[in-house]
Amino acid sequence: MSAAPGPAAVAAATARARRAAAAVTDPELPMLTLADLGVLREVSADAEGGVDVALTPTYSGCPAMAAMRADVVRALKAAGFAEVRVRTALHPPWTSDWITERGRRRLAEHGISPPGPAPRHGGPVPLSLVPRRRALRCPRCGAGGAELTSEFGATACRALYRCAACGEPFEHVKEI
């Protein structure tokens, strides 16, 4: 009577699982989904009602990884998947270039300056004795010419700036 689901059913289940996992939000940047952030690397359902997910950490010490993993498991169980296997994809390492266009827009809408293009390091990384100049716009007033306060902010992925025009401090997602 019950035959194993065919490839079309598995593909549909994968699409459904992808939608459910992609909608989970980042615990520290909750205006972004895991898909916006680019940490959701892979979602694939199988014929037995299970699903495999690959997540990649943004920074080695990112404490949000465990929460992301737990949230993905809950979202997929709620979407009807009996078994959810989440694996860590360490390679290739996450880069801020993986933040989607929608993600960049959402960051700016919420007062956080999105990252510029990440540096490409194949060989030795050159020493930089002066802060890299970034062409930033203040996410509040839109002015250029913000001053760097610190390359390290409230989380590993953010730097701190102060707008020279409106005087407001704001965060910038670092290029890595």
């Binding site: 909750p30 465990a66 929460a67 809950r74 694996r87 994809a89």
Partner: peptide, 28 residues
């Protein structure tokens, strides 16, 4: 409020994230 989604959740793990003991090499 982008944090609204956190409040309706009955799972308290949101407030203690980073304290889970899962395998850092899971699936590697």
């Amino acid at each position: 409020s982008v944090y609204a989604g956190l409040l309706g959740d009955t799972d308290a793990s949101h407030w203690a994230f980073g304290t889970g003991f899962d395998d850092p090499l899971a699936g590697v």
